[in-house]
Design a protein around this nucleic acid. Structure first.
Lengths: 268, 268
DNA sequence: TTGCGCGGTTCAATATTTGAACCAATGGTG
DNA sequence: CACCATTGGTTCAAATATTGAACCGCGCAA
């Protein structure tokens, strides 16, 4: 096996729960020899991938990661970075998966993928601006914004969209609260008769909901098992998509997603 | 030499100007054998440090960098990540270097270091909130904010601080324009008689000025050569400090800093 | 067709990595 | 206080992964 892979694998043992690790700790977690681990940590330190606190001699993730991640964020198209993952979700559930971004108060499409192979499929114009209140993407984002934002955006949507008729604030606000509690949004026949979808929010570096990933399918195919599969897929991959876009889900959302996956889904 | 270091060094050849590289290109830039480079890229790809566009077969920085950088940003204290760099600047110029952060409209201290060894030195209370209009840190940040922010913050500062007397908006605004053009801010005897400083802004991931790094010294030691040395040090390391905090300087600032360094400073 | 540059592969020679054993320092404990 | 456990780190011969010259197949332009 490549020594490079072995060395880089050491980085995987750092986590939010264990942000700093001692030599012996890394050694135990990795199961490798202590001398090897030490050499690898030295190499990683030389490149700035880890750094050692001179006082405690513990290691933490290094500053080179910031530099390179910043470069990646600036140079790699958002659509390119998420494409493989979105494709994979689409292959898993067999339906249309699309990722949209909130630009001001508008919902713009970023990337979508339909690898299902059904004859009847949901299709959508690539450059159309989607409404916030009748799509699961829009509701997923809104549900995780501060209430002041919600009010303003709902008002704006009522002004901007006439058809299909937007639900009133009184109807939407309770649903947003539900959505926030559930961790995902639903939309059955609200954007268009015959189209249903479920969606989760995606977050920026400050854990603000700024985008969404949703799965859409003909309402005719709607079933409990399909819904469960879609939500599970979104819960499973929502964090990774957020991460690839340079963001972090807030701890509360992480928790919801993790909890709901444990009972049903143990397999990769 | 560690193969790990050799492999990771390949990542350094990616840049804003060259976000994707072909195998042969990396080979040429690194001067290593093509087979070796290929193996290393495969290893890096396996860990998600680079990814290959299946269509063009070109490589780009991978998504693992985002994940790890996000973890670092969440878990490592900001003060810890910049401490070694700030210490180094202080050693270089022999004066007090301090980094402050804008929290709302208040300027909070994040870290400071004085490794000069002079008997007469500037000292500052660790928890004091600094004014924006009479410090180079404050002016450095303000100068790179949108004008609407500037007006609001100047008004707020007039309300919050009485002593020392704040300069009027008419006096500050032109100076902010100058500061933005120069790339750094100055303050001579404005915070306190006998204290001078120069400072540069630091930016967040969206290139907004949210912090500053400045060098303070007794006005008695002020000289052209000291000023030049301080500004050069700030220009040289400002980008790195910003990066370690997870941000990116806007292209305009990058350009100013780079241009002013070329004639005077060629050495590391 | 030819020739060129590209991404990628092979395999024997070789340089690097590996890990058991060993230090030195620290700190908790009877 | 001596003791033992644990930590971070080092050594060096044996084992193994890395290296690079040569090679392959492909796409493309002349």
């Amino acid at each position: 096996m490549y020594t490079v892979v072995k060395a880089l694998s050491l980085l995987e043992h750092f986590s939010d729960a264990r942000p700093t690790l001692g030599l012996t700790q890394v050694q135990r977690l990795s199961g490798r020899d202590k001398a090897t681990v030490h050499r690898h940590l030295l190499a990683l330190e030389e490149c700035g991938f880890v750094e050692q606190d001179p006082a405690t001699r513990r290691y933490r993730l290094g500053h080179a990661l910031e530099r390179l991640a910043g470069m990646r964020r600036r140079t790699v198209q958002a659509a390119d970075t998420i494409a493989p993952l979105v494709d994979r979700i689409s292959r898993e559930v067999g339906e249309l998966v699309h990722v949209t971004r909130l630009v001001g108060t508008e919902l713009h499409q970023l990337y979508h993928s339909d690898l299902g192979g059904y004859a009847v499929r949901v299709s959508l114009e690539p450059d159309i601006v989607l409404p916030l209140l009748t799509t699961s993407s829009g509701k997923a984002i809104l549900a995780f914004r501060p209430v002041s934002d919600q009010a303003a955006m709902i008002a704006q949507q009522h002004a901007a969209f006439g058809v299909p008729p937007m639900p009133t604030a009184d109807a939407v606000l309770p649903e947003l609260r539900q959505t926030a509690a559930r961790g995902y949004a639903r939309s059955f026949d609200t954007l268009e008769i015959g189209v249903s979808s479920v969606g989760v929010p995606l977050f920026d570096a400050d854990s603000r909901a700024v985008a969404a990933c949703s799965i859409a399918f003909p309402t005719a195919r709607r079933s409990d098992s399909l819904l469960r599969a879609c939500v599970a897929a979104l819960f499973r991959h929502g964090g990774a998509i957020t991460e690839r876009l340079g963001g972090t889900p807030p701890a509360a959302v992480r928790r919801i997603w993790a909890e709901h996956l444990q009972p049903a889904e143990m397999l990769p």
